[in-house]
Amino acid sequence: MDQIMKVNELSVVYGKGCDYCRDSNNPLEKNRCPHCMAVCAVRDISLELYDSEILGVVGESGSGKTTLMKALYFDIIPTKGSAYLAAYNNGETDIFSVSSQQQRAIRNNLLGMVYQNPVMGLLMNYSSGGNVAQKLIAAGHRNVAAMQERTAQLLDHMEIPLNRVKEPPRNFSGGMQQRVQISKAIANNPPVLLLDEVTTGLDLSVQAKVLDLIRMVQKQLNISVIVVSHDLAVIRMLSDRTVVMLDGQIVEHGFTDQILEDPQHWFTQTLVHSLI
């Protein structure tokens, strides 16, 4: 029941912003401010992530869910807001307030991220083993034999055969590339794993395999995971608790079974009724 991560009033605004759109109670046109024309991709999002749970974030394109993930992984700088990690200074320091060097250290050691597009998370011309090893090197490992063993182990766990560890991900199928990303993301046993639309665009059977592996890994390592998807079926399969995003804001939040069977907000109801 321990809190692993806390996000407070996170906002990402593209454009100047003004008093109107800064007040999250004021309605926007989708996510664009009618006064200053700024795009408020993420508006005052607050959420918590607890020990060993999978939190689903569901929403459609433009809901801000990917922007949220990127902000948490330091890929983009939020306009305002704070976030705390239990594993970083006991959750007492806002990770957005520290130096970029510190943020790198947090990213390398305490976070894992799997991008929708493998090109963003992997070096396509380096061996898949090398890709995973880079995360280990970033955490300070300097023994090649040990790293080779660990990377082979991680990749094997993701069902990537040993004879392909030396091959670059460029040669792999989409599902396999995602599995390499997952191996890399969990290499340092981070307390938090961020998954951004990881199975979108994959064939169904491949999707199923990747999701199964994610579930297995989460149970074994007791990692807390945030899963972002526009696909409610993926959310249903993975997450215990779900947050629904629309136009940069959270419109509903609760147990996944409650969201699916007793949705309160009109948008959640629309989503649920759209399930094929």
């Binding site: 970029s100 060097q101 790198r104 390398n108 380096y126 090398g130 090197i137 080779q148």
Partner: peptide
């Protein structure tokens, strides 16, 4: 340049690691 600024040199070691692997 950002990597130099952040002392983020895993890429430099990776270069050598990859040679060892290959």
């Amino acid at each position: 340049r950002q990597m130099h600024g952040d002392t983020e040199y895993s890429a430099a070691w990776l270069l050598l690691y990859e040679q060892i692997v290959r």
